Structure formats: structure tokens, C-alpha cells
Amino acid sequence: MKKKQYNGYKSYQYLEAGVDYKEFKLSREYDRVEPFVYPVSAEQEEEVQRILEEDMIISLHEHTFIAPEDLNEFMAFRRQGRDFTGYEGLSISGLDVVFENFMDGTALITSNHGWKWDDIIFDLGMRYSDFAHQDLVIRAETIDDLYRAKREGKIAFITSLEAATQIENEVDRVDVLYGFGVRCMGIAYSEANALGAGLREENDSGLTQLGRQVVQRMNKLGITIDVSHCGDQTSLDVINESSKPIFITHAGARAIWDTRRLKPDNILKACAEKGGVIGIEAAPHTTLTEQNSSHSIESVMDHFEYTVNLVGIDHVAFGLDTLFGDHVGLHSLLSGQLSIGKSHQGPKFEKVEYVKGLENPAEAYLNVVRYLVKKGYSREDISKVMGGNILRVLKETWVK
């Protein structure tokens, strides 16, 4: 496979470890566990490589940082506010565009609870500083940036945030975030905020008046809206309030795995009817099914196929939500911080150490393309779900 133009750069190598920042031993990027290649024939692999070479491959949702090898150090690692990007792993991922969500709600530099304005801005600035010293990743703020990345053998990062909690009651902060390059943003995460309810809340009264103002402002600015972590009523209200299509960047179908973290059919349909796109999720122990209750690429693709059958091929993509490191261990560590236990309550499942076939960004999207080719999806349909559908929405929601 043709690799991206990667020169071996490691995050913050322009500084001196132990002098300018505290050094942590980081996880291995792409072989922390036994790498998995979804089995295809030689002829099918040739088709996979043609698709990767010619088509735009987009992830609707990732966190591309490298976690510490020792997760007991994770909170100290987060307090430092310096995430390390998995450039080497990304260079072999086949990805052309990544919706990068940075530390997001786990930017715990000044707070134990996350989503503080200062922490979000600190996180963005720190990562941007690192990006400025390398030449694999480019910051994407326009459609032209995405095509340029593909043309030049680079990877475009679209700055995304999973919630707007950090704006508090300041609508103009949405403009500031746009100025900092944010081009996709959620409304609420797990906990309710001043805009609406997150998916952990027992009572969801929907989008507030402030929330409606924020949706309208995002439409005007050109920030695509995400409702992945919003409660059901808030999700529906956002879809109805928005004058433009929205994303559900990383989720699955509650109809085939009954947990609050996934979306019911009426929300999936409403998103599609508005012209939006649903990204299928693969973070550990989310997109399971009764037939495949041990999380792997097979259970994730069950959600993909169900959603395609429900809303049509034009409204589905992938936001696999992977990272470099022990994702299962991080979920256990951050279960309270991210309300994972609350939102994942549902059927019993077999706990896995990692999601086979989709363990990290280096292998995940390659295996999805292999799966689609092996299952006989047409080249046109593969092009749509691997990037074309997302591009369509961005062309409708971003500033021309």
C-alpha cells in the first residue's frame, strides 16, 4: 500500500523531553496488539488499494493521540495538557481526512470535570503548535484543504468538539471557536448543559432557547452540528431547528443493541431525511448485537448494514472513534468522567480486551474497506460511505 509522506517526526521533538515537559512512556502505535488484516483474496486486495489510492477516505470521528503505556499515569499525563499525535500510525492508515476531537471533555488541565473554556483553548493551541512543526497533517478549514491533502499525500485534520458545554452562556464563543478552526461541534455530551440534554440524563426536555440560538449561529458560521452524545429529544430538536443537514458522527442503531449510547430508528431517520449522515461507531463495547455480542469488526458492520437498510446508502459513513493505546482500559479509568457506565447500560455482553479488526486508526479503515469489497458492495457505494457522503454534507454546511 502507498504510504503517506511521513518523515519520521514525533510529537514535540523540537523540545527537550525532561526539560521542557515531563516525559511519559507511550503506547505502541500500530502493533500494541496483534495486527489484524480482514481476509480478502489477492484480487480483492488490489481493488482495496485502488479505492485507497483514488477515493477520499474520511473518518467522521477519531482521537488520534497516543495514550501512556501505564494508564495509572493517565491523569498526570492529562494534567500536563500535551497530547502526542500518532503520526506514524496515521501514515499507514489509508485515511485522507480525519475529524479530530482532541482531548475534548478529558482536557482536565485545570478541572476534574472537563469542558472548561480555558482547557479547550489550551488543548487546541498545544496541538496546533505541534502540527506546525511537521508535514504529514494539515489543518483543514475549507473544502479545498481536504482535496489538497489528498493530492499532496497528506492527512487533513478537521477540528471537532463533541459538545458546546465550554461556551457556557456566551453565544459569541461559538464564533471564537470557529476562528480557532472548529468546523464540527456537538451540542451536549453526557451531562446536560445550558443548551440541552446529554445522553446520560433521565429527563430530556430538549433544546433550550440558548441551544436554539447556538444551532442558528453554527448554521450561519459554517460549523457542522453533531448530536452523537445528545439525549433523544435534544437530538430531534437540533435536527428540526437546524436549517442545514447535521451529523451523528459516531453512534449505531439502538434497535439492534438496546443502550442509550446508540440512536433509535426515529432519530436515524430524521437525520437522514434532513440530508444528514450517520457515522458508525467502534469504541469498545458500544456497537454490539445479540448475534455478535463480542465486539469486533463483524458486530460494528452489523450496525452499518442495519443503518444502510433503514436510511439508505447516501446517509451512512464511519466515525469509528479509535485511538492509539488501551481503549478498553481508558474507558474503565474514565467511566465516571465520561458517564460510560450509565450510557452503556443494557444487554449483557462479553468484555473484550480490544475490538478485533478496528483496534486503532492504523488498521481500522483499511479493514472496513476490505470488508466492503469482500461483501460485494459496488465501487460507487464504497466511495459514498468512505467519504463521499460526508463531503456532500460539508459542502452544504461550510462557508463556500
Rank of each mutant, 00 (worst) to 15 (best):
E100T: 09
V373R: 01
S27F: 02
I66V: 15
S228G: 07
Y30N: 12
N101H: 15
M185A: 14
L195E: 02
D55S: 11
T259Y: 01
G186V: 14
I155C: 02
E29D: 08
R151A: 02
M1W: 05
L338G: 04
K384D: 06
C184G: 03
F324I: 13
Q134C: 07
D145G: 04
I313V: 11
L60W: 00
E170N: 14
A362N: 05
V48S: 03
I143D: 01
I138H: 05
A251R: 01
E43L: 08
N266K: 14
D175E: 13
T397C: 08
A255T: 01
A17W: 01
H61D: 05
G8E: 10
S243R: 12
A17D: 08
S299M: 09
L146N: 04
E152Q: 14
R139I: 15
T110C: 03
T289K: 02
K351W: 06
L195G: 05
I109R: 12
E350K: 14
K4R: 15
R217G: 06
G252K: 07
F349I: 08
L177K: 06
E54I: 11
F36Q: 03
L372I: 15
Y38W: 08
M1F: 12
D237C: 10
H133K: 12
R261L: 08
S111A: 08
W115D: 15
T142I: 10
K375N: 06
M218S: 03
Y306P: 12
G153K: 05
L207C: 09
K342N: 00
T64K: 00
L95I: 15
E43R: 11
I138E: 00
G8A: 11
N309M: 00
L262W: 04
W115R: 00
S383P: 01
G329S: 02
H327I: 13
T234H: 05
Y354K: 00
G81D: 08
Q213Y: 04
A317H: 07
G222K: 11
L288Q: 03
D83L: 14
W117F: 14
V368W: 00
S41E: 05
P347I: 10
A149K: 05
A364C: 05
D70Y: 09
R212T: 14
L195T: 11
